[in-house]
Measured scan of single mutants.
Amino acid sequence: KEFRPGDKVVLPPYGVGVVAGIAQRSVSGVSRAYYQVDFPGSRSKAYVPVEAPHSVGLRKAL
């Protein structure tokens, strides 16, 4: 896996977040693995496909 729990990442347009782990989510009846990204200071979460994280701009924070 490219990202691990605890990694600081950037996800446009949300900003800097932390990978909380990998979650299985069902979309249109198909279960897939997603990185769960939490954003400190907020209750917001984002789910990014493990198979294509760069397709939505997910990258490691510098």
Rank of each mutant, 00 (worst) to 15 (best):
1 K>D: 15
1 K>E: 15
1 K>W: 14
2 E>Q: 10
2 E>W: 08
3 F>D: 02
3 F>L: 05
3 F>V: 03
3 F>H: 07
4 R>D: 04
5 P>H: 05
5 P>E: 10
6 G>W: 01
6 G>S: 01
6 G>K: 02
7 D>M: 06
7 D>S: 04
8 K>A: 11
8 K>F: 13
10 V>T: 07
11 L>Y: 07
12 P>K: 05
12 P>A: 07
13 P>I: 06
13 P>S: 07
14 Y>Q: 03
14 Y>I: 04
14 Y>S: 01
17 G>L: 02
18 V>L: 06
18 V>Q: 04
18 V>K: 05
19 V>L: 08
19 V>T: 00
19 V>D: 01
20 A>S: 12
20 A>E: 09
20 A>I: 13
22 I>H: 02
22 I>T: 05
22 I>W: 01
22 I>D: 01
23 A>W: 09
24 Q>K: 11
24 Q>E: 11
24 Q>S: 10
25 R>W: 09
25 R>D: 04
26 S>L: 13
26 S>V: 15
26 S>A: 08
26 S>P: 06
27 V>T: 09
27 V>S: 07
27 V>Q: 08
27 V>E: 12
27 V>N: 07
30 V>L: 10
30 V>F: 06
30 V>E: 09
30 V>W: 03
31 S>P: 08
31 S>Y: 10
31 S>N: 12
31 S>F: 08
31 S>A: 10
31 S>Q: 11
32 R>M: 11
32 R>E: 10
33 A>P: 10
33 A>L: 14
35 Y>W: 05
36 Q>N: 03
36 Q>A: 08
37 V>H: 01
37 V>K: 00
37 V>F: 01
38 D>G: 04
38 D>F: 13
40 P>W: 08
40 P>A: 09
40 P>S: 06
41 G>K: 10
41 G>T: 10
42 S>H: 10
42 S>C: 15
42 S>I: 11
42 S>G: 11
43 R>N: 14
43 R>A: 13
45 K>C: 15
46 A>C: 10
46 A>M: 11
47 Y>S: 02
47 Y>H: 03
49 P>T: 04
49 P>L: 08
49 P>E: 05
51 E>Q: 07
51 E>G: 08
51 E>L: 07
51 E>A: 08
52 A>C: 15
52 A>N: 14
53 P>V: 13
54 H>L: 08
55 S>W: 07
55 S>F: 07
55 S>Y: 08
55 S>C: 15
56 V>P: 05
56 V>S: 14
56 V>M: 09
57 G>A: 05
57 G>V: 04
57 G>P: 03
58 L>A: 04
58 L>G: 03
58 L>W: 00
58 L>K: 03
59 R>S: 08
60 K>A: 10
60 K>Q: 08
60 K>T: 07
60 K>D: 12
60 K>P: 15
61 A>T: 06
61 A>W: 13
61 A>N: 06
62 L>W: 05
62 L>N: 14
